[in-house]
Write a protein that binds this DNA or RNA. Structure first.
Lengths: 344, 344
DNA sequence: ATGGATCATATAAACGTTTCTGCCGCCTGT
DNA sequence: ACAGGCGGCAGAAACGTTTATATGATCCAT
């Protein structure tokens, strides 16, 4: 078979109709079960469909039905396993309903995200699941939300009441910090997320609650805002650990940055957890495989993606979003935290 | 704004035409630069587009133009960072050309992959980048390729000459094995990939070349076929290491399984690399962060995805695939290999 | 028998584009 | 002055569906 064979235009309903000696409407009726048709003719149609290898032109259907059976999923980057897990959840919910998921990676497209709204308006997608991440919430989210249904994941926008699927970030953050503080640490530094993100703020707030609870002045704890990427964890750890006296506990707003921080520690010969304790957030699949195993907070990433997509579908069908609720975040206590000065 | 406001149908070309007091064809001409139109009227149209917030209905365009400006990307699972990296490469190449990428995860859809071919036939996507992975190559790939252009990534199908982007798997495998063997190991086991996959076969062939080169009978080395997932690395390591005498070198066909193997070693108190050396394949971003740092082979994942998508676009435009070539694979020598009996 | 249901089918009008075709007026070279 | 070309525009036909409407049958109750 040559390439040009493939170009040969595919059969249309008209072809099927001719082959089955019925009208196109009859074909449509049997294909969609949308009208009565005699068994004998129905079979003729079905046969024709088979022999011609017909499948409907979805562009035409979409045009007529004004729906694309497709949603957009904007994710900051797939190489962050947390995002990848959420993406799988979204994809799973979508494919269960036979809707397609188009991947939108804002960084990959140089143009301003204004294009996302245009994409939505162009009716190629019916709605979007928005996974905010690296960087701050773009102003264009307003355009987006005006153009069609949007469901946020792990994020919330104070001004607007967009449906959002989040988890107990604040509680999880408070608890993991409290656990670490309970080991006796007094010199602490936080490697934060992008200050513009709600989630980062929530986690920070949780940490501060824990600080206060441990009798530490929250304002005395330095916060180094990062971008949720490993490299930024690495670099900020360098800054944080150059303080004198050196912090004995590094609280990182996500696992990737915690890993970057541990990478730095290894480079400069600081032992984790003997010299410095580290905690993360997310519980990536391989966080438990590091040495030391990372103490962190597990977010139900897959579930969050699944719920977000489901909420979007409800929105599309009933014009109302089901309760999206808050999912549990559970702290995972492992080996990367130890009392300060614990030595070897 | 209420949800129902959003449902209000979007403006069409007709609306724009009316507002600008021109015909729809004129609107189309200015929007596509496809015909001469007087500057004054052109501006009227552009203004109307702005005030009405018009954006073209892509379903209608697709119908007329018989092209969806969308490709499919089938990936076995996003949580394998190698796949995620390839996916990002694909996405990047696509968004540079303003084409959408729809994510297809075969496992997520319970139905047989026959649907993928149907998706392609339905003209919702113009072609697909196929990332084979876990499991063996489905027979349905034939249907797929018959339905439209397909470019394979990191895989090849003996019978067919589908365009494919691969890297020097065999050479990389040979070299990394040779390096490990050079340390003196004689008792070796291989944790392989799915036997049905070309890539897995290539890597295995490379290993065997190295065995022969080191004076080892390739047939005497046990091969445990896995599925490229971490759990399978874990379980197969258990099997492989229960041999007596115990192998001192575990060659894994990808990093994820190598990590699973190391996980198992840790569980049962075997030290890596003192008691058993481990090598992987892929060089995932965090493989260098493990303890010990994993010796492996780097594949240019991002580049492979990018090239595959680019090749697909050429196929779509010129009906001929550019040279897809073979990308380099470079071995990364790190700490997970040490001479046998190296002790502490 | 016959009037109305009910069933089965065909015809045709949309859906929102692109683009072919044709029309009008103007310029240009003779 | 006039044929031909061309810039600038509008009209209408397509693209492949879905679905409202129209048209015949058939069937039952009167």
């Amino acid at each position: 078979m040559t390439q040009s064979d493939r170009r040969r235009s595919r059969p249309t309903m008209k072809d099927v109709a001719r082959h089955a000696r019925v009208s196109v409407s009859t074909v449509s009726y049997v294909l969609n079960d949308s009208g009565p048709v005699a068994p004998e003719r129905r079979n003729r149609v079905l046969d024709a469909v088979r022999v011609l290898e017909y499948s409907p032109n979805e562009s035409a259907r979409n045009l007529k039905l004004r729906s694309a059976s497709t949603i957009g999923m904007v994710v900051p980057e797939l190489t962050n396993p947390f995002f990848a897990m959420v993406a799988e959840g979204v994809q799973k919910a979508a494919s269960a309903r036979d809707v397609l998921v188009v991947l939108v990676v804002p960084d990959a497209t140089e143009q301003p995200e204004e294009n996302q709204a245009k994409l939505l308006r162009s009716q190629r997608i019916d709605g979007v699941v928005y996974l905010s991440g690296t960087g701050s919430m773009p102003a264009s989210i307003y355009d987006l939300a005006r153009s069609g249904p949007v469901v946020l994941v792990d994020e919330q926008i104070p001004g607007m009441d967009l449906p959002a699927v989040v988890c107990e970030s604040r509680k999880g953050a408070r608890e993991v910090a409290a656990h670490a503080l309970g080991q006796g640490h007094r010199r602490v530094a936080v490697i934060g997320g992008p200050p513009g993100l709600w989630t980062a703020q929530q986690r920070l707030a949780g940490y501060r609650e824990a600080f206060a609870g441990a009798g530490l002045d929250p304002d005395s704890v330095p916060v180094f805002p990062g971008d949720y990427r490993q490299a930024s964890g690495h670099d900020l750890a360098a800054r944080a650990l150059s303080d004198d006296p050196r912090p004995t506990l590094l609280i990182c707003t996500n696992d990737l940055m915690a890993i970057g921080a541990m990478e730095y520690c290894r480079e400069v010969g600081l032992r984790v957890p003997e010299d410095v304790s580290v905690v993360g957030f997310d519980d990536l699949p391989f966080s438990a495989l590091l040495t030391p195993r990372l103490t962190t907070v597990r977010q139900p990433a897959h579930e969050m993606g699944f719920r977000a997509a489901s909420a979007l579908f409800e929105l599309l069908e009933n014009d109302e979003s089901g309760a999206v609720g808050e999912l549990p975040a559970t702290v995972q206590i492992r080996d990367s935290v130890r009392p300060p000065g614990g030595g070897a």
